[in-house]
C-alpha cells in the first residue's frame, strides 16, 4: 500500500456530521479510505479489526463518551492520531483532549475545522 493511502475512522452519532467530515476530507485526500462508526463502542471494535491511522471523535454520543473511547483507543493503539470534534468548547474538554495527545477541534464541521484536524494528523510524519 503506498504511504499516501491512509485510513481514517470517523466517529460521530450524527450521520450528517459523518457525511460532512467525509466530504471535506475526500475533497483534499481523495485516495484515503474512510470508515464510519456511530458510537464509542463501535469505534473500538473497528480499530480492533482494521488498521486505522487517524480518527475524528465526537464527544457527546449515546453510551460511551468520545473522550473515554479515545483514551481506550490510544492505550491499545498508541499510533492512532486523534482529533476530538465537539460543540462543547469549555476549557476542561480542551485540556482533556490535550492530555490524550489529541487535538481539539470546535464544531461545526467546516472546511476550516477539518483542515485543522488534517494538519494534526500529518504534522510530525
Amino acid at each position: 500500500m503506498p504511504p499516501s493511502i491512509k485510513t481514517l475512522l470517523i466517529v460521530d452519532d450524527s450521520r450528517v456530521s459523518r457525511m460532512l467530515i467525509r466530504a471535506f476530507v475526500l475533497a483534499s485526500r481523495p485516495q484515503w479510505i474512510i470508515i464510519e462508526a456511530a458510537s464509542g463502542a463501535e469505534a473500538l471494535e473497528v480499530v480492533g479489526e482494521n488498521r486505522v491511522d487517524f480518527c475524528t471523535m465526537d464527544i457527546n454520543m449515546p453510551g460511551m463518551l468520545g473522550t473515554d473511547a479515545a483514551e481506550q483507543m490510544i492505550s491499545r493503539h498508541p499510533k492512532i492520531r486523534i482529533a476530538i470534534f465537539s460543540g462543547n468548547i469549555q476549557d476542561c474538554q480542551q485540556s482533556r483532549a490535550a492530555a490524550l495527545g489529541a487535538v481539539f477541534v470546535a464544531k461545526p464541521v467546516t472546511a476550516k475545522s477539518v483542515a485543522q484536524a488534517l494538519e494534526h494528523f500529518e504534522s510530525i510524519e
Binding site: S14, R15, V16, S17, N60, S86, G87, N88, I89, Q90, K107, P108
Partner: peptide
Amino acid sequence: DALTEVFNIGAGRAA
C-alpha cells in the same frame, strides 16, 4: 439528524 447536530453545537456554545 442535521437539526439535532445544529442544536447540540448551539448547546455547546451556550454552555
